[in-house]
Nucleic acid binder design. Structure first.
Lengths: 166, 166
DNA sequence: TATTGTTATACTCTATAACTATA
DNA sequence: TATAGTTATAGAGTATAACAATA
């Protein structure tokens, strides 16, 4: 017989999947990403890593490849492969950084800038159509809460490992 | 020269990736899922689809395979493959539903129930360690906001397609 | 020695279609 | 004809290691 829980204690013994935050977040994020990808994938022949690369180069101008990786939360392998495809499509240029010849500096071509100019309003419109659910106050609150979870997971990247290891 | 935006209008022309909700949600969800997976993957030799299947069977008792799919947001192919591995590990049983011989009824074995009992407190603890960021009021607010986004995306699954197609 | 980037490999996830058996 | 489940296949995402060039 399960014992009734006191109100100030959390039930750690049972779990209903569609009330479980990690599952809900993952499901929600996947739905959102699929909705956004529907806008840029077929129409512009862009994969997600390519779209991310174009997004940061479009808003920041030329950047070294490793900074693209940091800004897009992609490792250097994914960046490298995205750049290979973007180069083939004539959407970016790459040149060696003369001050450190290990570094590659990436920049959008006019073609890449066109893609950026075309895609951004479309994906922003998708974001708007989703966030239209919220009032301005709710948006701000959601933004804050998401930001604090991001920070927390950054500060304790081993939140699970601590539980896993001992 | 970019024109200054009036305060009640949204800038659809530019996009900074780490302020863009779909990207932030995806990044956050991935981090959370990786943290949770760190708890069940190596220690219990569970993939995400297997863990989800065990989670719903553990909280609901025996279920037809198609309901497992609905509850876990997985299609029948993923369920089928998860079940194949769970069967091989002796963690579930499957039998044909006598009232509709197309249906497969799944149930945790004692071994599967043991896994469920062992894993749930661990993954709940991860959830707790993340949500510890919030006060009770903030949790309730976050829960509500997430729920409304879920509902919205359910109601307008073609939110992006509408923009994509015309 | 450490860092930047490339290439190779493998494993998982996702989506789709083809197939079976039942209804 | 439609539904439940299985199998097969291909594309994308993810993680890792090995490597070359440079610092």
């Amino acid at each position: 017989m399960p014992q009734p829980l006191s109100e100030d204690r959390v039930d750690l013994e049972s779990l209903v999947l569609d009330r479980y935050l990690p599952f809900r977040l993952s499901h929600l994020a996947n739905r959102v990403m699929r909705t956004v990808a529907g806008v840029y994938a077929q129409r512009f022949q862009l994969s997600a890593p390519e779209w991310r690369t174009i997004a940061v180069l479009g808003s920041n101008g030329e950047m070294p490849a490793n900074m693209v990786g940091e800004s897009t939360a992609m490792d250097k392998v994914r960046v490298s492969r995205a750049v290979t495809r973007l180069l083939a499509a004539g959407r970016v240029t790459r040149r060696v950084d003369p001050t450190d010849r290990r570094r590659i500096i990436l920049q959008l071509t006019p073609v890449g800038l066109d893609v950026h100019r075309s895609v951004v309003p479309l994906v922003r419109a998708v974001e708007e159509s989703i966030l239209a659910e919220f009032t301005a106050e709710e948006r701000a609150m959601f933004d804050t809460l998401i930001g604090r979870l991001e920070d927390r997971l950054k500060r304790i990247p081993a939140a699970g490992a601590q539980i896993l290891d001992p």
